[in-house]
Design a protein around this nucleic acid. Structure first.
Lengths: 205, 205
DNA sequence: GCCGAATGTGAGGGTATCCTCGGGTTCGGA
DNA sequence: TCCGAACCCGAGGATACCCTCACATTCGGC
C-alpha cells in the first residue's frame, strides 16, 4: 500500500514506437483476458508483444497503467455502442423488447471478439480497481437510466438509477458467465437473460 | 504454473490445535473477504489469528488450501439453507414469489454476516479457482433446477438447467454488487433483483 | 552522410511473499 | 512423574515478479 511515484514516461512520436505501443496494448489485453490481471506478468506481455520488458516500461509506468490504457481505448467503443442504441431509441422504430435484444447482442459480440473488452469486464469488479469500477459502472448506469427515461415511461423516475444498476450488473455477469461455458450453454444463458430482462422491464414500457 | 507437490499436513487432534485451526480459518475468511485472495498474505492471516506462520503451515499445505477449507465449511451451511427452502416447497404453503423472496433474503443475510461466505462468493469466479467455481455452481444450479421442477411446472424441463444457471449467476452478482454499495442502494438493488426474478419466473409457476 | 534525439534492450536490483525447517514447548496417557 | 507425540515458533531460503538503468541501435531533419 505504498504511494506510487508514477514517474513520467516518454510519449511515443515516431511511427515505430506508436506501433510498438499498440502491440503492447494488444498483448496486454490478450494476457489479462486470458489469465487475469494479477496472474499476468509484464515480462509475459512484453514477450507476447514481441518486444522487451524495457520497451514496455518506456511507455507505461507500471502494470496497472496497461489496464487503464486498455480501458480508455475501449471506453470510446462502448460509448459508441450506446450512441447507436440511443439513435435507435430516437428513431423510435423498434419495440422495446427488440431494442433490448439488439443491444445485448451487440455487447455479446463485442465481448466475444475483443480481448481488450474481455480484459476490462473481467477485472471490472476486481478489488484493485474499485475506483475504476465505480466510474465505469456509474457511466454505464447513467446512460442506461437515460434510456429508461425514454423507453420506460411507466417506471418511476426515482427507481431509474437502481434499475439501471441492476441491468448493468446483470449484463456484465452474463457476459462473464456465458463466455466461460463451453458448447451451447453460453448462448442459451444469453437468451434466457434477455428473456428475463425483457419480461421484467416490459410493463414499464 | 508449476506442479504443486501438495505435501501432507498434520491433522489436528488436541483441543488446542483444533481451536487454533478454527481461528486461522476465521482470520483467513476475514482477510480474504476484506482484501481479496491475491492481495491477502499468509503472514497477515497468521497474525490476525494470533498465531505464527509456522503453525498455519502445520495444518494447511498452501494458501489456496485455506480458501478450499473455508468453502467446505460453508458448503454445508448453504446446503442447509437449500434444505430449508426445499422443506418450504414440500410444505407447499407459500406462494412462489414469497418463497423466492424468503430464500433471497436468507442468502443476503448470510452473505452480510458471514465473512467466510463473502470470501467464497467474492473469489467464486476468480480465474485461479475455475474448477472449484464450476463445482459450486453446478451443485447450486442442480438443486435450483430441482426446485424449479417442483414449483415451476410450466417451465420446459429442457430449459431448467439454463434457467437455474442464470438464477445462480444473477443472485451471486447481486450479492457482490449490493454489498459493495454504500447507503440505501444495496438493499434497493436486492429488492429490484427480487422483482426481476419473480416477474420472470412467475409465468412458469 | 552527420548527429542528436528517440527508441530498444535485457541483465539484474529491490522487494514481496510463500513456505520450510530445526529447535523449543506443551500435552496427556501410563 | 515421565516421556514420546503433538504442537508451536519465526528466521530465513527460495522464488517470482515489478521495474530501472546504462548502453546499443535506429530514425529523420539537415
Amino acid at each position: 500500500m505504498k504511494k506510487k511515484p508514477t514517474p513520467d514516461r516518454r510519449v511515443p512520436s515516431q511511427a515505430r514506437s506508436l506501433e510498438r505501443v499498440e502491440r503492447i496494448l494488444d498483448a496486454a489485453a490478450f494476457v489479462f483476458a486470458e489469465v487475469g490481471f494479477e496472474a499476468a506478468t509484464t515480462e509475459g506481455i512484453a514477450a507476447r508483444a514481441d518486444t522487451s520488458i524495457g520497451s514496455l516500461y518506456q511507455f507505461f509506468p507500471n502494470k496497472r497503467a496497461l489496464l487503464y490504457a486498455i480501458a480508455q481505448r475501449y471506453a470510446e467503443r462502448v460509448s459508441e455502442l450506446f450512441d447507436r442504441v440511443e439513435a435507435e431509441v430516437l428513431a423510435g422504430g423498434q419495440p422495446f423488447g427488440a431494442l433490448l435484444r439488439t443491444a445485448i447482442d451487440a455487447l455479446v459480440a463485442f465481448h466475444a471478439e475483443e480481448p481488450g473488452f474481455r480484459a476490462i469486464v473481467r477485472n471490472w469488479s476486481s478489488h484493485e480497481f474499485a475506483e475504476f469500477d465505480e466510474a465505469a459502472n456509474a457511466e454505464f448506469a447513467r446512460r442506461t437510466a437515460q434510456l429508461l427515461g425514454k423507453r420506460a415511461p411507466k417506471l418511476p423516475k426515482s427507481r431509474r438509477p437502481v434499475v439501471a444498476s441492476v441491468i448493468v450488473e446483470t449484463v456484465s455477469a452474463m457476459l462473464i458467465s456465458a463466455s466461460r461455458r463451453k458448447g451451447k450453454l453460453g448462448p442459451q444463458i444469453v437468451e434466457e437473460t434477455k428473456d428475463m430482462l425483457e419480461r421484467w422491464l416490459a410493463p414499464y414500457a
